[in-house]
């Protein structure tokens, strides 16, 4: 399913999932295939961007189409955030890094592994979608992160 994202849809009686997702526009999906990031794919220049936008930020062409990216990638850079940065309501410490996803998209993302001694450049990682904090309405808020891939 694509997680309901606007307030209206979130509170709809038929909403099958009591959780909500981060943000006001779809960032990720989680269905039978597992979690995927929703990226934009430009038909004109072929580049991927994230989050998805109808306008390609690289070449300004309209009509970029939404495409699912992930879950596999490789960790390029990483560090550990020890204290909560502005606006963050999840647990600390947490890992933070750049992941190159299979398919040619690099993203900056939270890592589930906060101990950087257990990480290394090139480490295979996989996308996960999980509750990050409890929203003001008492419902868990889902976010995405990467964890070391299970061999």
């Amino acid at each position: 399913m694509t997680f309901a994202l606007s307030t209206e849809r979130r509170t709809h009686a038929s909403d099958p999932d009591p959780r909500r997702s981060l943000g006001s526009a779809p960032l990720f999906v989680c269905d039978a295939d597992g979690p995927r990031l929703l990226a934009g794919a430009c038909g004109a220049c072929g580049k991927l961007h994230f989050p998805a936008s109808p306008v390609c930020p690289y070449c300004a062409a309209d009509g970029a189409r939404e495409t699912r990216v992930g879950p596999a990638g490789r960790l390029e850079l990483y560090t550990t955030v020890l204290r909560a940065p502005p606006g963050y309501r999840g647990p600390v410490p947490y890992g933070f890094g750049v992941v190159a996803l299979d398919g040619g998209l690099s993203v900056v993302a939270r890592l589930t592994e906060a101990d950087s001694s257990r990480l290394r450049p090139g480490l295979p990682v996989e996308l996960v979608v999980e509750p990050l904090f409890t929203g003001d309405d008492g419902r868990p808020v889902l976010s995405y992160a990467f964890r070391p891939a299970v061999a």
């Binding site: 943000g23 850079l77 940065p85 963050y88 947490y94 933070f96 939270r110 904090f133």
Partner: peptide, 24 residues
């Protein structure tokens, strides 16, 4: 600079970007 969802996701950690750049 950071949209609210990026803040909530923990992506507004400015020194962490500097750290990644230093690691690179």
């Amino acid at each position: 600079f950071f949209e609210p969802w990026r803040e909530e996701a923990g992506l507004a950690a400015t020194p962490a970007y500097f750290a990644l750049r230093a690691q690179r």
